Amino acid sequence: MKSDHRINYTKHVLQQSLLELLEEKPLNKITIKELCMKSNISRATFYAHYVDIYALITEIEKHIFSSFQLEEFLLNLDNDSFPTSLNLANILSLVKSHATFYKIFFNHHMHDGYMSKALVQLQSKITSYWVKKNIYSDQITADYAFVFCKNGVLAVIKEWLNKDALLQETPQATSEVINEILASVQKFASDTNNPG
């Protein structure tokens, strides 16, 4: 029990130290030596818990999303009404409640995190629907369209987070904006591929 407390304390100190360093510089400029000095923890102790700094940042984000049931979210998506069924409000609520972390995360171009991976898990479900409905003529085009939309969603979330708190739309309102944009992209593609 005492050992668990020590492990939790060590991880907490490393996480907090990393977040403080991220306010000063991008992740790829932070060394393990620098992190260990800041947190007053030895390199050996760091390596006892993490293989590298990227593993640490992944753990921070996983902890934030531990209450979010990704598998249930994916199962409940309705292919026949995508993208208007894509309710991102719960994800955006989590992002907003950890705004300090995510502002740092997005402003340093760290898009290869849990949220990005969650969107990638949607890829086959979404792109197969697009091809089935002849919105895009083939899988390659649908995959590129998905990448376009995914990066757009992440960019909107970044812009939303960087707004002043008083001007920031609610998670639900932002989710609706994202869906409206995705729907218009889908309609444009469908009209282009099925003229007249």
Rank of each mutant, 00 (worst) to 15 (best):
S3F: 13
D4M: 09
R6G: 05
R6N: 13
Y9C: 05
Y9L: 13
T10Q: 08
V13F: 02
L14N: 03
L18G: 04
L19E: 09
E20K: 07
E23Y: 05
P26R: 00
P26K: 00
L27K: 02
I32M: 07
I32Q: 07
L35F: 08
K38L: 08
I41Y: 15
S42H: 04
A44E: 14
A44C: 09
T45D: 04
T45P: 02
F46M: 08
F46R: 02
F46N: 02
Y47H: 09
Y47Q: 00
A48V: 01
D52Q: 03
I53H: 05
L56H: 05
T58P: 03
I60Q: 05
I60Y: 04
E61S: 03
E61R: 00
E61M: 01
K62Y: 13
F68D: 01
E71K: 01
E72L: 09
E72P: 00
L74Y: 02
L75R: 02
N76Q: 10
N76K: 06
L77K: 02
D80L: 15
P83Y: 04
N87C: 04
N87W: 06
A89S: 15
N90P: 06
V95G: 05
K96R: 13
K96A: 12
S97P: 00
S97G: 01
A99C: 11
I104Q: 12
I104A: 14
F105A: 03
N107P: 04
H108A: 08
H108T: 11
H108P: 11
H109E: 12
D112Y: 11
Y114R: 00
Y114S: 02
Y114T: 05
A118W: 01
Q123G: 05
Q123N: 08
S124Q: 12
I126C: 04
T127M: 01
K132E: 15
K133R: 11
N134C: 11
Y136R: 00
D138V: 07
D138I: 05
Q139G: 03
D143R: 01
D143I: 14
D143E: 11
Y144H: 06
Y144L: 15
F146H: 02
F148R: 00
K150T: 10
G152C: 05
V156K: 08
K158F: 09
L161H: 02
L166P: 00
L167T: 07
L167Y: 14
T170K: 06
A173R: 10
E176H: 08
E176F: 12
V177D: 02
I178G: 08
Q186Y: 07
K187L: 15
F188C: 09
T192W: 15
P195I: 15
P195V: 14
G196Q: 11
G196S: 12
